[in-house]
């Protein structure tokens, strides 16, 4: 019974993706339509006479109102077409799909790393509050939150690639190449997750049912892992999902530092060239990827939090 309701909840959430995507494209489209440059001027550059520019704009359909172009974009997108790049003339969608695996791998690996490091250190810090782990962890969290990720990455390259020669500094050719970018992306998120885990864990440890568990004579490890952790982790799961958005943004910068050919690097190149279809495509694609991840997190949440399950059973 419960699973059937949960299934309905999942279907509803999946269907909700469609209007969300419409709004996202609308926003991105709206922002990009503020661009002072028109495609004709960008593509023809200095060679373009005003007449040629106007003619090219007309050919591209750029002289139509924004809303018409928006509707047109949606119709094409439904067929998997995001238009062609102003600069390279290549298909925007296939360019993104080609670059996407690097970004996705990097982001997913980082989120996993951040979650594992953050949750473990957070538990340690909470269990021994004001202990050595708590002190070091809190200080480290403060530092990583204040350090620009890309600078941290540059310093890491100086130390691990130049001085120690342990790890390569650019590209993603082997597993070794993943270590630095993944860690550099993950550490600031791990710091945030650690602080949150510590707080929720401290709150949970003070609950009555934990005292009950202890007074039943359960081992401390069992109390922490069986009784406290499950409840303390609920808010952490949501934040890990939200962090994913920051991670995708951070990936833009980190890809630049480590010369990784991902979507992040693509969008920066596109912005420099004023390649509007490519920028729009990248932004829409990344946003869609992010809402898919959030969807998974929401469903996961419904599974692990019995309170949400109960709410859907009652309806």
């Amino acid at each position: 019974m419960g699973d059937e309701r949960l299934g309905r909840y999942i279907i509803r959430r999946v269907l909700l993706l469609v209007p969300m995507l419409f709004v996202i494209i609308f926003i991105v489209f709206g922002i990009m339509s503020l661009t002072p440059n028109n495609p004709g001027a960008v593509m023809l550059g200095l060679r373009g006479t005003p007449e040629a520019i106007t003619a090219l704009n007309h050919e591209l359909g750029y002289d139509r109102p924004v809303l018409v172009r928006y509707a047109d974009y949606i119709v094409h997108l439904a067929q998997g077409d995001m238009g062609t790049s102003y600069i390279t003339g290549r298909n925007v969608f296939s360019e993104i799909v080609q670059r996407f695996p690097a970004t996705a791998k990097l982001a997913l690996l980082s989120v996993l790393t951040a979650a594992v490091i953050g949750v473990l250190l957070g538990i340690l810090a909470a269990v021994r509050q004001y202990g050595i782990f708590d002190m070091i962890g809190t200080a480290a969290a403060m530092f990583t939150a204040s350090m620009p990720g890309f600078w941290f990455a540059l310093i890491a390259i100086l130390v691990f690639s130049l001085r120690l020669r342990w790890l390569p500094s650019n590209g993603l050719d082997s597993w070794k190449h993943y270590i630095l970018p993944t860690l550099m992306l993950a550490l600031p998120e791990a710091a945030g997750i650690m602080r949150l885990t510590r707080t929720t864990m401290l709150e949970t440890i003070r609950q009555d049912y934990i005292r009950t568990a202890r007074s039943k004579g359960q081992t401390e490890r069992r109390v922490i892992f069986r009784h406290a952790l499950k409840n303390a982790l609920l808010p952490v799961v949501t934040v890990i999902g939200m962090d994913f958005g920051w991670l995708l943004g951070g990936a833009v910068v980190i890809e630049q530092v480590f010369s990784i050919n991902g979507v992040g690097k693509l969008i920066i190149e596109a912005i420099r060239m004023k390649d509007v279809p490519q920028v729009t495509g990248c932004a829409v694609f990344m946003a869609f990827f992010f809402i898919l991840v959030m969807l998974v997190v929401d469903i996961l949440y419904a599974y692990i939090d019995p309170r949400i399950k109960v709410r859907y059973q009652r309806r």
């Binding site: 969300m20 996202i24 932004a283």
Partner: peptide, 23 residues
């Protein structure tokens, strides 16, 4: 509702898109 959807666009991407448009 509107802001929830806006937040689906990662912060850095949003900022970059705005700079891309404005210069």
């Amino acid at each position: 509702r509107v802001l929830d959807t806006v937040m689906c666009i990662p912060f850095m991407l949003m900022a970059l898109a705005i700079v891309a448009a404005l210069g």
